[in-house]
Computed example of a mutant assay.
Amino acid sequence: MPEILSAKRLITASQVIDRPTVTIDNDGLIVSIEPNSAPANADTVLTSTFFDIHTHGGAGHDVMEATPAVLDKISRFMGSHGVGHFLPTTVTASVEATLASLEGIARTIERAKTSDWNPTQARPIGIHLEGPFISHAKRGVHPPDKIQPPDIALFDRFQQAAAGYIRLITIAPEVPGGIDLIRHCSAQDVRVSIGHTNALATEARAGIKAGARSATHTYNAMRALDHREPGVLGVVLDDDDLYAELICDGVHVAPELVHLWLKAKGPERAILVTDSMAAAGMPEGDYMLGNFAVKVADGRALSADDLAQGKQTLAGSVLTLDRAVSNLQRFTGAPLEVAAHLASRNPAAMLDLEPGFGDLTIGSPANLNVFNMAGERMRTLLHGRLIN
């Protein structure tokens, strides 16, 4: 039996449709969208599912484990929070560990293209390589002994292990060799994000000129803004063409600066991410991010080693992307239409994915989030199947 959904609004990548009726066939595909046909008292809003381009894991597991069972669990967890597609994101580790993880993730990406994939799981479609080509000065919790100088040959080894699925890479442009690596990656259609960087404004601009397209978790692990030396942060906020991620959990960035980021980047260049780690969706306690220990308490994921030394260093987040969308509306007053685009349309645009990727059109998979009128996600359908 076909399934029929009615709503007050349908938010697609290109338009907002009032009072739609959406018909979904038995294969989970959208067969019709009829505007102005839903009951007048319809009280839900439909959007595309989300696309998280920066996540290290969740549900008690880290993507660096890279086994089929672990990646399936993470994929199910992502789907249960409104995500339809994601980029498993690595963390700085030894070269050997990174190669092994990339190989495992690549096999799962291949499997996600087949009929064997569980349609109620979010689909990994590429890899975000965060580290090891970052700044020691702004490494965050990335282990200092595993950071590598930017190296084209090493990147090529990583990409070969990943079967070409590295779609996004974080690079500190000021580190010697960084600009050459940015050019090399850009020439291969790998999008470059400047992050974990202590770059001056001139160094950040050089990275953008070389091909950098985005910025990794704006404000975090970046040189602070100064009115005489704006540094990388000043450039990120000022450059109209540069996309910029943000972790909208109220922990990594104060709500006032979330508002400033959205004003600066606008609804076309701002991207919501989670930077989630294994503890997302789990009770507070002790977890791992890559190969180092993290303690989670009061909604904050902190480096266990730094805590032992009396320091508090954030180690990813326990955020989910549906909560980020809700927080953005609450912190800034932005409508759901804007918040949803920041978590779906914009990351796909930054990566230059095929036209219509993740959009809701006739013939596309019915990957839908259902929101109440307060802008809170109530449930999700992946390929027409209700998963929560």
Score class of each variant (00 low, 15 high):
residue 6 S to M: 10
residue 7 A to H: 09
residue 23 T to N: 10
residue 25 D to T: 05
residue 26 N to H: 11
residue 26 N to K: 12
residue 28 G to L: 12
residue 32 S to C: 07
residue 38 A to I: 05
residue 45 V to S: 04
residue 57 G to P: 08
residue 58 G to F: 03
residue 58 G to T: 04
residue 64 M to A: 04
residue 64 M to P: 02
residue 68 P to A: 11
residue 68 P to L: 03
residue 68 P to V: 02
residue 72 D to Q: 10
residue 73 K to L: 13
residue 78 M to T: 00
residue 83 V to S: 03
residue 84 G to Q: 06
residue 86 F to S: 00
residue 91 V to E: 02
residue 93 A to V: 02
residue 93 A to Y: 01
residue 95 V to Q: 14
residue 96 E to K: 13
residue 99 L to E: 15
residue 103 E to I: 00
residue 104 G to N: 11
residue 106 A to K: 01
residue 107 R to W: 03
residue 109 I to R: 03
residue 111 R to V: 00
residue 112 A to C: 09
residue 113 K to P: 00
residue 115 S to C: 06
residue 119 P to D: 13
residue 119 P to W: 03
residue 122 A to D: 00
residue 122 A to F: 00
residue 124 P to C: 04
residue 125 I to G: 01
residue 127 I to L: 07
residue 130 E to K: 01
residue 130 E to A: 02
residue 132 P to E: 05
residue 132 P to F: 06
residue 133 F to N: 08
residue 135 S to A: 15
residue 135 S to G: 13
residue 136 H to C: 05
residue 137 A to H: 12
residue 142 H to M: 07
residue 145 D to L: 05
residue 147 I to F: 06
residue 147 I to A: 09
residue 149 P to Y: 11
residue 149 P to A: 14
residue 153 A to N: 15
residue 155 F to V: 02
residue 161 A to S: 15
residue 162 A to K: 03
residue 164 G to K: 06
residue 166 I to G: 09
residue 174 E to W: 01
residue 182 I to G: 06
residue 183 R to P: 06
residue 184 H to Y: 14
residue 187 A to I: 00
residue 188 Q to C: 09
residue 190 V to G: 05
residue 193 S to N: 09
residue 194 I to K: 00
residue 195 G to F: 03
residue 197 T to F: 08
residue 199 A to L: 11
residue 203 E to P: 07
residue 204 A to P: 04
residue 204 A to Y: 04
residue 206 A to R: 12
residue 208 I to G: 08
residue 210 A to V: 06
residue 211 G to K: 07
residue 213 R to W: 04
residue 218 T to I: 13
residue 219 Y to M: 10
residue 220 N to H: 14
residue 223 R to M: 14
residue 223 R to V: 04
residue 226 D to E: 14
residue 226 D to A: 13
residue 227 H to C: 04
residue 229 E to K: 08
residue 231 G to V: 07
residue 238 D to N: 15
residue 240 D to S: 15
residue 242 L to N: 08
residue 243 Y to F: 15
residue 246 L to S: 13
residue 252 H to L: 09
residue 258 V to W: 04
residue 263 K to G: 03
residue 272 L to V: 04
residue 279 A to D: 04
residue 279 A to W: 03
residue 280 A to H: 01
residue 280 A to P: 02
residue 281 G to A: 07
residue 283 P to N: 12
residue 285 G to S: 13
residue 288 M to L: 15
residue 296 V to H: 10
residue 296 V to T: 09
residue 299 G to I: 06
residue 299 G to P: 11
residue 302 L to Y: 02
residue 302 L to H: 03
residue 302 L to W: 02
residue 306 D to E: 15
residue 306 D to Y: 09
residue 309 Q to K: 15
residue 311 K to D: 14
residue 312 Q to N: 13
residue 314 L to V: 05
residue 317 S to V: 06
residue 322 D to P: 09
residue 325 V to Q: 13
residue 335 P to M: 07
residue 335 P to A: 14
residue 339 A to D: 13
residue 343 A to E: 10
residue 343 A to P: 04
residue 344 S to G: 10
residue 345 R to E: 12
residue 346 N to G: 14
residue 349 A to E: 15
residue 353 L to D: 09
residue 364 S to T: 14
residue 364 S to R: 13
residue 365 P to F: 01
residue 370 V to A: 07
residue 371 F to S: 08
residue 372 N to V: 02
residue 372 N to F: 05
residue 375 G to M: 09
residue 377 R to C: 14
residue 378 M to P: 00
residue 384 G to M: 11
residue 386 L to F: 08
residue 387 I to R: 05
